[in-house]
Design a protein around this nucleic acid. Structure first.
Lengths: 230, 230, 230, 230
DNA sequence: GATGAATGAGTGTTCATTCAT
DNA sequence: TATGAATGAACACTCATTCAT
């Protein structure tokens, strides 16, 4: 009655079965959102029974979390070019572009992570929290390196910079996540990178010696300040 | 804690009853979150029946939305000093401070608005959307005036600036909204205002760049001194 | 919010109040059907309170029944030309036409009477049952007179004739009552009258003695048969 | 009378469970009517839970409809003799008799179909609509064949004939459906068939009218004889 | 390992009716 | 006479989770 749902072989080794459930679950999460995500639909879609799902996933929530983690793994697993030679502005742009592209590619999953999981007390104990930090790191690494190279100011509150960048990313994509319209990854990334650059780069970076010295002093003081915060 | 539901007088005039329901609903929303918010508990807490609630609120969701709107009204109703005379940096700081203070005072409600309502298609048709825009406006008005006065760059993408400011506000408060720890409204506001200022103000404006950097270095050193005294 | 509902004077004499309630109730019944008929909507539409309605009508059902009765009264109160001079076929047609025109003019009310009230045990104790019988009488009177005048066969089972006529009327109007399309009162009436006429009029009405005798035999047997059914 | 709900074996194969639910549902429909038909009572009566019912029937209405369809299937499944050799009058009588016998055997279900389902917009998309048409067809087939054989007039409005026959059937059985008294399937069938025959047969057809009347008299007397033997 | 039948504690919502004011 | 606040008993429907087979 509800379509034949490819007649999966009855008995599967643990790995295959888990994989097939996760795949179906991801589809359901994409199509329905986490609110409307039911174990029944997952079972139907992967041609197994709810009982089997509960064999491998103790809880609906665990399944949902696993889907998100696996999805995140795929993104983090993609090779990410270091671009150590590119100018710092280029690298910042690219790191932001990459974060935005995740949102763009998987809105439903992003929404689930940002809105359901992140709001959950205990979020910090999840693997996805650490995965998310990795994403953040890719961007912040560039910022820190910009500081070392003297391109960016040394006295930045890095947490604040982080919050501004990722806050902007989320704000720019809310409408999209809500299903209202689209956004351009390129345009958003270059807009954010641009404002951030101006906000954090060293002003007169030109060439007079006094300015140079001041800049060096600034870097040293910045590092001192950071040490004091520990 | 829940007690025997103080035997409120049976008959109340419409206004009082509505107020009593809203009050109870707000408490439930605070205590349980919107997911676990049940009309049954609201009824019990204000010593009435679910039927009565539905007399005044056609839907669970309507009740929830009304709670949020009423709460937001309270904030918007507070007098907000114009500070037209203060320097632009002061005014920006204050506007951000004000937005942060809303979050600080009512985390549960903020969380509901940001995570449930904002994700809802149709969010834009709600009064709370307009109320939220007012909050945003208080900040953006300052930014636009800064442009008029020549303090801020004229070529800013205002939507991007908005997203960065409010994105940062939200990011800085997530942990708090999740119930993990606290944050300082003052510190957050000054941090955000600071970075934003640098990112959007006209570069060479107040004197030459070297002078400005020196001025900033002074400030940092001042803070270092203060810390050494601790 | 729901329109001002002409500000009826607060205090009305019993008659006026009852009339105003009945009027509103009829409208609601028409617009919503008896299933969706709520006392709340009636109260709102006639600008009074549910309490007042219950002052005059002990029960929702009583109100509904009163609406139907009053409506039927209006139809029965209309002058109905006797047409004693017209040919019998003409008179039969007209009587059927009249019954059909009631259905056509008030489908919602008809539907309520035919489907709700008539199915109700106790239907026979209602005034509407007697009103309905009057309608039936208008048609059957013609049939009986046709028998007296020798136009119609004397051995007719009058109840059966009645059931066929009114059964046909209802069957022809079901789709209309269901809200699916329309029907022509004229066409239906003439169709029904036509078939009925042929079925009940005296066949060859000619004069040979054998036929006469057979006809008499037929009548006798008919009566015998009827007795056996008791 | 309701007893302690015989502790049916907890686990049943799908088919058995569905059958047990349908059986219980049919009983409830019979006892309470469709208005008072609640899923809770069905669950209780077949010793299962409402949840289980909803596993198999997506909706209360679907369950109700299934009950009606299944019941109708039982009737349509019974072998129905073609009687191609019998005289047309006999065949007409029998077809009507058969339709009446359905009503007689299952008044509550008939009432549900005639009054609830038929009034439903969308009635025409239901299987029961087609099942009902089959019943109608059994009668109308005879009528059409009568036309072919020259026994019945060729200029009949078949829809009208249909409406008269089934209208009469329903009218004759209303009181019974309402639970007031009984009716005789034989008597009703022969009455209706009789009047219809006269209304639709070709006047002078098979020889002279006297012959025809005599033929009819024979038939009636034959039936009288049969009755006297009871 | 796999199944799928079973559940039961909810969930929001409805509305005729009552009765203190 | 009129009100309208209050109710409570229902009701259809949901779904994560369990467990006998």
């Amino acid at each position: 009655m509800t379509g034949p749902a490819k007649p999966q072989p009855k008995r599967l080794p643990r790995d295959k079965r888990v994989a097939s459930i996760l795949e179906a679950a991801r589809t359901v999460l994409r199509d329905r959102g986490s609110e409307q995500f039911t174990t029944a639909e997952v079972a139907e879609r992967c041609g197994t029974s709810e009982g089997t799902i509960y064999k491998y996933f103790p809880t609906r929530r665990d399944l949902l979390v696993m889907v998100a983690e696996q999805w995140f793994d795929e993104f983090l697993g993609q090779t990410y070019p270091d671009r150590a030679d590119s100018p710092i502005s280029e690298r910042l742009y690219h790191a932001i572009w990459w974060a935005l592209s995740i949102v763009r590619r998987e809105p439903a999953l992003t929404r689930f992570v940002l809105m359901e999981l992140r709001a959950d007390p205990g979020y910090r104990t999840l693997r996805i929290y650490r995965q998310n930090r990795q994403t953040v790191e890719r961007v912040m690494k560039v910022v820190r390196e910009g500081q070392s190279s003297g391109d960016f100011r040394a006295d930045l509150d890095l947490n604040l910079v982080r919050d501004m960048i990722f806050g902007a990313i989320e704000h720019q994509t809310w409408a999209y996540l809500r299903g209202e319209g689209d956004f351009s990854v390129d345009a958003s990334a270059s807009g954010i990178a641009d404002v951030v650059m101006r906000g954090i780069e060293v002003p007169g970076a030109a060439g007079d010696p006094v300015a140079r010295t001041v800049k060096r002093l600034e870097a040293v003081v910045g590092r001192l300040e950071a040490k004091l915060d520990d």
